[in-house]
């Protein structure tokens, strides 16, 4: 009965890490706590962290079993987009979840992503912070203002079809992710936005679920002047290429 309930779907959770020694342990504990009713594997793509992230993952493999936690490291920091491509190569599930390792994405929302996908048959379920039930904690007024401004600009110009463009907590049908990621060229901040806009243009069925986002790195605003310029360049790029 227990096996029956788990169903046929398998979820590969790809988590890129760089110096996330403590967080990766916490996140894996929480993933196992919240996904015990599902078939899944966690794929940690570590970019040669000097803080011993990989040692921790190996210890966790002893606790949880090597078939549930896969460590697929790379020699050095090579960027987020290629980390997903790398992880995807080793994914055995028919669905793939991508999430950040810094615990701003809480694994407790994974069941709602899965439930939404099963209910709607969507190819992509994306987490959104900007609806009822969602939210952000730990942002100052400036950060909120930039975020809202960027969002209004993108909604007006791009018509992306989703309310949270830069959120990166998403569930993909594996074939959809492979298809979309092969046509994405942006790096860094714009990468997540390009992924979802290309998915919309390709006509994939996208659904949203509310998530909360707790920013634990207080004070260090990731949105400086150069990020805003990058964002605007990304917006322009998406306008003319999608």
């Amino acid at each position: 009965m227990a096996e029956d309930k788990k169903g046929e779907n398998k979820y590969s959770i790809i988590i890129p890490t760089y110096n996330e020694r403590l967080n990766i342990a916490l996140i894996i504990y929480l993933v196992f706590k919240h996904l015990k009713d599902f078939n899944f594997e966690v794929i940690v793509v570590d970019d040669g962290s000097p803080d011993g992230t990989q040692d921790i993952v190996k210890q966790l493999q002893q606790v949880y079993g090597e078939d549930h936690i896969l460590l697929r490291p790379r020699a050095k920091k090579l960027g987020l987009g290629t980390a997903y491509v790398h992880g995807l190569k080793h994914a055995s599930g028919n669905f793939v979840v991508i999430m950040d390792a810094d615990l701003s994405h809480h694994p407790k929302y994974l069941p709602s992503f899965i439930k939404k996908q099963i209910e709607t048959g969507a190819s992509i379920v994306t987490g959104t912070r900007y609806v009822t039930g969602g939210g952000v904690h730990g942002w100052n007024l400036m950060r909120k203002l930039t975020s809202r401004g960027a969002n209004v600009l993108a909604q007006t110009l791009l018509w992306p079809g989703v309310s949270d463009l830069t959120g990166s907590f998403r569930l993909y049908r594996k074939s959809a992710l492979e298809d979309i990621i092969s046509s994405v060229v942006s790096k860094g901040y714009v990468f997540q936005m390009e992924m979802i806009v290309r998915a919309t243009r390709k006509g994939y069925h996208i659904e949203e679920v509310p998530i909360t986002f707790v920013d634990r790195v207080y004070g260090s605003s990731k949105l400086g002047g150069s990020e805003i310029v990058e964002y605007l360049k990304g917006l322009l790029y998406l306008l003319v290429t999608t």
């Binding site: 952000v136 904690h137 909120k144 203002l145 909360t212």
Partner: peptide
């Protein structure tokens, strides 16, 4: 958007 910005302390 700013006024209705959802927060979650």
């Amino acid at each position: 958007g700013l006024m209705q910005f959802p927060t979650c302390p």
